[in-house]
């Protein structure tokens, strides 16, 4: 009973944090509430026995992603955008209630307690049985890094364009000087040196 109470408090606090993250006007507050959701979820995952996943979720979800959000908000600006939603709110509420009831209909009949039946070890499953997942993860990280470099490199495009314009202007100026020089040579041609001298 006490165990269920602890789980209930943690899960309830996570849902409360998620709702606060949704309601927050400032993007920074929203990101901090999201970090709270991540911390609470990682505690629940730890209590469920998935210690490694809890540590990864805590370090990545509450650490790395929050830092990235703060960086993005500081660059892009943290002001909120008006209340008018993309779709009518009654329709959104209807969809949420329908999907929530459907989910509850599927998950509540599960009569389960924390099971101790398990496979050999996480290392065996992770490195051998699910080796394709590892390849997918490597490909995801590689493509994510390349995509990030490509997307952020586009920010330099205007600077490169201005450099091109500057170079073109310099070249045009040099051509203009050459034309002036050629014109002055036509007015005052340089006399060829006489063979006698």
């Amino acid at each position: 009973m006490l165990e269920a109470l602890v789980y209930g408090i943690l899960v309830g606090a996570a849902i409360f944090s998620a709702i606060q993250s949704l309601r927050a006007d400032s993007l920074l507050r929203s990101a901090i509430w999201l970090a709270g959701v991540s911390v609470l979820i990682s505690i629940v995952i730890y209590l469920l026995g998935a210690h490694r996943v809890a540590v990864i979720e805590l370090s990545v979800g509450a650490g790395l992603v929050t830092v990235l959000f703060v960086f993005a908000i500081s660059v892009a600006g943290g002001e909120g955008i008006g209340e008018r939603s993309l779709i009518p709110k009654p329709l959104a509420w209807g969809l949420i209630i329908f999907s929530g009831l459907l989910l509850i209909y599927f998950v509540l009949p599960i009569k389960a307690s924390i099971s101790t039946v398990s496979e050999t070890s996480l290392a065996t499953v992770f490195w051998q049985d699910r080796s394709l997942d590892l390849l997918v993860q490597v490909a995801l990280i590689y493509s994510g890094a390349l995509g990030l470099v490509g997307i952020l490199a586009e920010a330099k495009a205007p600077l490169q364009q201005s450099m091109v314009d500057e170079f073109a202007a310099e070249r045009e100026l040099a051509l203009h000087d050459m034309e002036i020089l050629a014109g002055s040579e036509e007015d005052h041609p340089i006399e060829p040196q006489s063979k006698s001298s």
Partner: peptide, 12 residues
């Protein structure tokens, strides 16, 4: 059970 509570949390 704790599993049911977690699944309700997933729904929320």
């Amino acid at each position: 059970s704790p599993i049911n509570i977690c699944l309700l949390g997933v729904t929320g």
